[in-house]
Write a protein that binds this DNA or RNA. Structure first.
Length: 381
DNA sequence: CCAATTTGACCGGT
DNA sequence: ACCGGTCAAATTGG
C-alpha cells in the first residue's frame, strides 16, 4: 500500500486524537458515572470507534480509495477529506467540494487546508467571527464566511466557509461542507489570557464550557499545549505498548497532566461530535487558539520519518477494541456495522437524542454535564 | 452599552 | 457582466 506522507501524517494525527480521547475516557471512568457521565462516556467510545475505523480504512492495503468514501455514521460524525487523502490544494477545490458546476475562482493567497462534510460545522475547535454570508449560484443555502477570531489581534489568516449541502439532509439532518483555509497562526501565547482559564479544571471532567461570554463561535475546543516532553512520554509509552506488545496498555494520562498547559491534546481532536465539546484550558502559558498542527513530536519521529510496520500497529491496537479481533482483514463495510451497528444501543444517532439538544442547539460538556450553547447562533440548520 | 451578526455595497477575478 | 469573497454600517441581542 503506497502510504503517502500526508496520509501517514493524517493517520498519525487521527490516532493521536484517539489515544488522547481514550485517556479522557479512562479519567472519566475513574469515578462513578451519573447519567451525564454515561452519556459522555458513550459518546467518547463512539468517537473512538470512528477514530479506529478511519485509521483502519487508511491503513487498509490497496483500498485507500474507500477511505474517502467513509460515510457519515452519525449526524456529527465527520468525513474529513483531508484525513483520508491529500490536503486539498486550492486547484482541486472544485472536485473535492462537489462544486463542479461552479466556475473555478482562484483564491489568491488562500491555501485550502481541509475540507470536510459534517453535520456540525462549528465544532472543530476554533473561535471564529462571521464576516459574511452569500447566496451562491445553484446553491439552495447561503454560504457563510468565517475568519479566525484573532485575525486582527494576532494576524491569523485562518478562515473557513460553511456551505450547507443541498441534498445533504439525510436522516441525521442537514450536512455541511466546511472548507478551512490557511493555517492558524494565532496559537502564540497570549500573556493577557485571563486566569479563569486555569489549570484547576480537569479534563474529561475538567472541561469548561465552549461558550464565550459574548456568544462568539467557540467550537469544540481542545486546546493544544506545547509540552513536547509529555507528548513524547505518552507517545513513547503508547507505541512501545502497541508495537512492542507490552502486556498492558499505556498508563492513562494523569488527570493533572491533562489539565494544564502541559496537557497533551491531539493535534486535531477528531471531531468529538455527538455534542462533545471540550475546552482544555491553558493556564499560565496563556491561551492557544488551537492549532490543528501539533508541535513537533520528538519521539517517535514524525510520521514522515518512520515507517509503519505494516499492519502490525493495527493488529496490536485492535486488541483494545472490544470484539475487534482480526480487523485488518475485515471488510470495511463489516467494520462499519461492527462499530456502528444499527441497533439503538450503538447507533450514534439513537444514542444521543438526549444530548443533542435538538437540531439547532449546540451542546457542550462541562464537568460531565451537558450545556446548551444558546448564545452561539448554532446556525439554524 | 457593547459585541456579534446581518446584509447590502463594493472589489476583483473570470 | 457575472459572481464569489470581503468590507463595513446597521441591526440585534444579551
Amino acid at each position: 500500500m503506497a502510504f503517502g506522507q500526508e496520509a501517514s501524517e493524517q493517520l498519525w494525527q487521527e490516532l493521536l486524537g484517539g489515544y488522547n480521547l481514550n485517556a479522557r475516557l479512562l479519567a472519566l471512568l475513574g469515578d462513578p458515572l451519573d447519567k451525564h457521565g454515561q452519556e459522555a462516556a458513550l459518546a467518547m467510545s463512539q468517537e473512538l470507534s470512528r477514530v479506529f475505523m478511519v485509521s483502519l480504512y487508511t491503513l487498509k492495503p490497496g483500498d485507500s480509495s474507500r477511505v474517502a468514501g467513509v460515510r457519515t455514521m452519525a449526524p456529527e460524525t465527520t468525513v474529513t477529506e483531508g484525513s483520508v487523502s491529500q490536503r486539498t490544494p486550492a486547484t482541486d477545490e472544485r472536485i473535492c467540494s462537489g462544486e463542479e458546476d461552479v466556475p473555478h475562482r482562484k483564491l489568491i493567497g488562500e491555501e485550502v487546508i481541509e475540507k470536510k462534510i459534517t453535520a456540525s460545522p462549528h465544532k472543530e475547535g476554533y473561535r471564529w467571527k462571521k464576516y459574511g454570508q452569500k447566496n451562491i449560484q445553484k446553491r439552495k443555502f447561503p454560504r457563510q464566511y468565517y475568519k479566525c477570531m484573532y485575525s486582527h489581534e494576532r494576524g491569523c489568516r485562518a478562515k473557513k466557509r460553511v456551505q450547507q449541502q443541498d441534498n445533504g439532509s439525510d436522516a441525521h439532518g442537514p450536512m455541511f461542507q466546511v472548507t478551512f483555509m490557511n493555517e492558524h497562526t494565532c496559537h502564540q501565547v497570549l500573556p493577557s489570557q485571563n486566569s479563569s482559564n486555569n489549570a484547576t479544571n480537569l479534563p474529561a471532567t475538567n472541561t469548561t464550557s465552549t461558550m464565550t461570554r459574548n456568544g462568539a463561535h467557540f467550537d469544540h475546543a481542545v486546546h493544544i499545549g506545547d509540552n513536547a516532553g509529555l507528548q513524547n512520554k505518552i507517545m513513547t509509552c503508547a507505541l512501545t505498548t502497541v508495537i512492542g506488545g507490552a502486556p498492558s496498555p499505556p498508563p492513562p494520562v494523569e488527570v493533572s497532566q491533562l489539565s494544564d498547559s502541559a496537557s497533551y491534546v491531539p493535534p486535531r481532536l477528531p471531531e468529538v461530535s455527538m455534542g462533545l465539546e471540550y475546552e482544555t484550558t491553558v493556564s499560565e502559558t496563556g491561551f492557544s487558539c488551537g492549532s490543528p498542527i501539533p508541535p513537533p513530536v520528538e519521539a517517535p519521529a514524525a510520521p514522515s520519518s518512520w515507517s509503519l510496520p505494516p499492519r502490525l500497529p493495527v493488529e496490536a491496537s485492535s486488541s483494545y477494541l472490544v470484539g475487534a479481533g482480526n480487523i485488518p482483514s475485515m471488510d470495511p463495510m463489516m467494520m462499519e456495522e461492527m462499530y456502528f451497528p444499527c441497533s439503538p444501543l450503538f447507533s450514534p444517532v439513537a444514542a444521543q437524542p438526549s444530548i443533542s439538544g435538538g437540531d439547532d442547539v449546540c451542546m457542550a460538556v462541562v464537568a460531565g454535564r451537558w450545556y446548551t450553547d444558546t448564545a452561539s447562533p448554532c446556525p439554524h440548520y
